[in-house]
């Protein structure tokens, strides 16, 4: 399947399991996805070549009871890309995994807006977005977890981490929780930092030059997300793109 820029509907039938890899290159994405009861979708939305014009991706996913969605949003060297991802957990026992990786350098601007709405009880969501920002890249992560009244036994965890490599890089994070049920376990964490000086020194002490050590540490930072992508070819492609030449 390829992106048309128009609204595209995807339905995963009851009990089915599918993996869809969509490449974002020069067309906007506008996806409306329904995952029926017990069905499973692995969706990968990846941009790995520099985009010529500003792009948006809008994805809304409706998850019925006991369905599973695993979505990976990958942006390597984005130029002005805004991703909006809305996940509605409508049926009990639905499970959502959202992973994001963005690697932006000079002139890069990337925005990830995610909303996970826990409408039903006993749903789980796990979200990990990591960004590596170099040059004067600007990244914004705005993640909302909303738990509706009655959505008891919700478990939601959201994590956002920014690695800043340059004094001009700029990272914003807005990890928001709106919780209206009490028997829940919800948490989020957000961090911003640079390459760990102690790790860098340790590697230099073993004779690895500073630039290589930094590349290895950056790749390690990204690998945490890459390892979670449920598609071997994508993992390999990203590992090759990110790997330090040693």
């Amino acid at each position: 399947m390829t992106l048309t820029g128009e609204k595209q509907h995807i339905t995963i039938d009851r009990g089915q399991s599918e993996t869809i890899v969509l490449t974002v290159a020069d067309t906007n994405a506008d996806l409306e996805i329904t995952i029926n009861g017990g069905a499973e979708l692995n969706l990968i939305l990846k941009q790995t070549t520099v985009n010529a014009k500003a792009l948006t991706t809008n994805t809304t996913i409706n998850c019925e009871a006991n369905s599973r969605i695993n979505i990976s949003t990958i942006n390597i060297e984005p130029r002005n890309i805004a991703n909006t991802l809305i996940v509605n957990l409508n049926g009990e026992g639905a499970e959502a995994t959202l992973n994001g990786l963005y690697v932006a350098g000079a002139g890069g601007a990337i925005e990830n807006r995610t909303e996970i709405h826990h409408h039903a009880a006993h749903c789980t969501s796990t979200e990990l977005y990591k960004g590596i920002l170099d040059g004067n890249a600007v990244a914004k992560f705005a993640g909302l977890i909303q738990v509706a009244p009655g959505a008891q036994k919700t478990a939601a965890r959201q994590t956002n981490r920014h690695l800043l490599l340059s004094p001009d890089a700029h990272g914003y994070a807005q990890p928001h929780l709106i919780i209206n049920a009490d028997d829940v376990k919800c948490s989020h964490g957000a961090t911003s930092g640079q390459i760990d000086r102690e790790q860098l020194f340790y590697m230099q002490q073993r004779g690895i030059d500073a630039a290589t050590a930094q590349r290895l540490l950056v790749a390690a930072f990204a690998n945490e997300v890459v390892a979670l992508i449920p598609d071997e070819a994508t993992r390999q492609e990203l590992t090759a793109l990110l790997s330090a030449d040693v």
Partner: peptide
Amino acid sequence: EDRANEGLFLSFQYPVEIPGVSMTNFLRA
């Protein structure tokens, strides 16, 4: 790194953990 490559090795009192970097890749580098 040049000191290391000249042959100086320090066995650290508290070796730092480097999550995500495999021993193999690290030593190869």
